[in-house]
């Protein structure tokens, strides 16, 4: 099973590729000399693909994601979106952070509007408001448009975070353990919310998670990173469940425990 699940590194046609990390390197200077977090990291993500990334704590997952987001400078190699090298952050790459990072003094609507205003600057006020309301509705917050973010629960705040990211229609969506801080019940709800919107929009997504079940449930492909230093992609696993998926169907599928065991074996290795 192993060999057939692993995709060849450069197995995609150029026209299929949305996001390309080639020979990526990251070095943090420390008082004790340079610390090479990532080296020779190659990863390609297809259009409309949802990948999840797992790996040991401290291996450099956040570092990699923040480099894709443009928030962290690249030490070597490169990152391109649709063939264009990225230069700094930009709204073509939406980010859902681990903490919701909403402006607590703004309403839910205004938080979503912040990005929409920026990206759809030529739309009328009504159109922009409709976009915000559409996505807030999609994440199940129709009653809370005008609540200030500080008054929302963690789970509701992260819903707004999801709406904010989708509303600017990015080419790539980056998620760094977005549900890590939530209790398991809320986490399940938000996974459903996320995957439901995603099924509609099919935005190329890269999501870091520590939760193996979450990784399988959401992804077309699970990417495993080796432990640092000099971390790179260690292995990949294609998840062949058809979409749209339901949690029940996924768990009852014959391959589910095979996938699960494969990932856990990698992590425990």
């Amino acid at each position: 099973m192993k060999s057939e699940r692993i995709l060849a590194q450069n197995g995609f046609a150029q026209s299929e590729i949305m996001l390309d990390l080639y020979d990526l390197k990251k070095v943090y200077p420390t008082p004790k000399g340079d610390y090479v977090v990532l080296e020779h990291l190659n990863l390609q993500v297809k259009k409309e693909e949802f990948i999840t990334i797992i790996g040991h704590s401290g291996c450099g997952k956040t570092t990699m994601l923040s480099m894709i987001a443009g928030l962290n400078p690249i030490s070597g190699g490169g990152i391109s979106v649709l063939g264009n090298s990225i230069k700094g952050p930009g709204p073509d790459r939406g980010v859902i952070f681990q903490s919701p990072s909403l402006m607590p003094w703004m309403t839910a609507l205004d938080n979503v509007m912040l990005g929409v205003n920026r990206v759809f600057s030529h739309a009328t006020k009504k159109q922009k408001e409709d976009i915000c309301k559409y996505y807030l509705h999609k994440v199940g917050l129709e009653g809370a448009f005008n609540k200030r973010a500080a008054e929302l629960s963690q789970g509701m705040q992260q819903r707004v975070g999801i709406a904010r990211a989708f509303a600017i229609k990015p080419k790539v969506l980056l998620l760094d353990e977005p549900f890590g801080m939530l209790d398991s019940l809320t986490r399940g709800e938000l996974q459903d919310v996320l995957i439901e919107i995603w099924n509609k929009e099919k935005i190329t997504a890269v999501m870091i998670t520590h939760d193996v079940d979450e990784a399988i449930f959401l992804a077309d492909r699970v990417v495993m990173m080796t432990s640092g230093p000099n971390a790179k992609i260690g292995d990949m696993l294609t998840i062949d469940f058809e979409r749209p998926r339901t949690r029940k169907a996924v768990i009852e599928h014959d391959d589910y425990y095979k996938y699960r065991k494969y990932l856990i074996d990698f992590l425990e290795h």
């Binding site: 987001a69 443009g70 928030l71 939406g94 990072s101």
Partner: peptide, 17 residues
């Protein structure tokens, strides 16, 4: 908060905003 600054960066807000 660094998160807020990151949000502003990702959304590419103008200096004024």
């Amino acid at each position: 908060d660094k998160d807020f600054i990151n949000v502003a960066k990702v959304l590419k807000l103008s200096a004024f905003q």
